[in-house]
């Protein structure tokens, strides 16, 4: 089984962002970066599939990231978790149109004859929620999006997809693409051995062949702050006051 996992480098979300003077980016100073949440789940799911094969050594997990040289760090992290090799599609300017990004990812994937191509359900920063679908269309492979469970055999995959108050069971022949929701697997922590091994694993850098951007970022801004909260009381004695406020002030009762 040959598996590709597309991973994006994103800032840690556990901060109060500042907008950069350009007005079209967040101020990156002091931010920590890591693999986008759902892409981390995808790497873990790929490694588990490889490990379940009768002969894991004959399977390969390739991680691919588009971006400036700093994405090499993200790719090394995925290799320290266990991915076999990595490809950086070098591109130094931020991109926002998922169809333009997808063109570059598809151009790379086309040459790889992968059985399974894995994406995150969405990138946690720009959150276009569509890159994987564009790539699949360009490659002519079927895609199942936002899956929370996955089982694969040699030729087929079965997946579960969460809906509002329901779920779907879906099947599809390989080769195929999937995008990963939470629930599938939590990413493992790289072991010391893994970190050492990752330093020697191959990381190839190629220029990215991005498409034309027709979805252009004009501005980034912080959302309006919520007014500070207030504590109205303690224990069950506060309930009548709460109900009054919900009725008269918030008008939601």
């Amino acid at each position: 089984m040959k598996i590709a996992v597309l991973i994006k480098r994103v800032p840690d979300m556990d901060v109060r962002f500042k907008i950069a003077p350009s007005g079209t980016a967040v101020d990156e100073s002091g931010l920590k970066f890591d693999i986008s949440d759902f892409d981390g789940y995808a790497v873990e799911a790929a490694l588990q599939i490889k490990e379940k094969q009768a002969d894991p050594a004959s399977s390969e997990v390739v991680v691919i990231s588009l971006g400036p040289d700093v994405v090499q760090e993200t790719l090394r992290k995925a290799m320290s978790m266990g991915a076999d090799r990595a490809v950086q599609l070098k591109y130094d300017t931020p991109l926002h149109d998922s169809s333009a990004i997808a063109a570059a990812l598809a151009a790379e994937l086309k040459t790889g004859s992968y059985d399974l191509i894995m994406f995150g359900r969405m990138s946690i920063d720009t959150a276009n929620q569509s890159t994987g679908t564009y790539v699949a269309e360009l490659l002519g492979v079927p895609i199942i999006t936002a899956i929370s469970q996955l089982t694969t055999s040699d030729r087929q995959l079965t997946a579960r997809r969460e809906l509002e108050g329901a779920y779907e069971l879906i099947e599809c022949d390989l080769p195929a693409a999937v995008s990963i929701d939470e629930g599938i697997a939590r990413p493992r922590y790289p072991s010391l051995k893994g970190i050492m091994a990752a330093k020697k694993k191959p990381l190839e850098t190629k220029p990215a062949q991005v498409g034309e951007e027709r979805y252009k970022l004009d501005k980034m801004e912080l959302p309006p702050e919520r007014a500070a909260g207030r504590i109205i009381g303690e224990g069950k004695d506060a309930v009548p006051e709460l109900v009054r406020l919900l009725k008269e002030e918030a008008k939601v009762l």
Partner: peptide, 13 residues
Amino acid sequence: PGYTGKVIQSFTL
């Protein structure tokens, strides 16, 4: 909204 709702992005399509 992006960045888990912490940044509002304006785009032209």
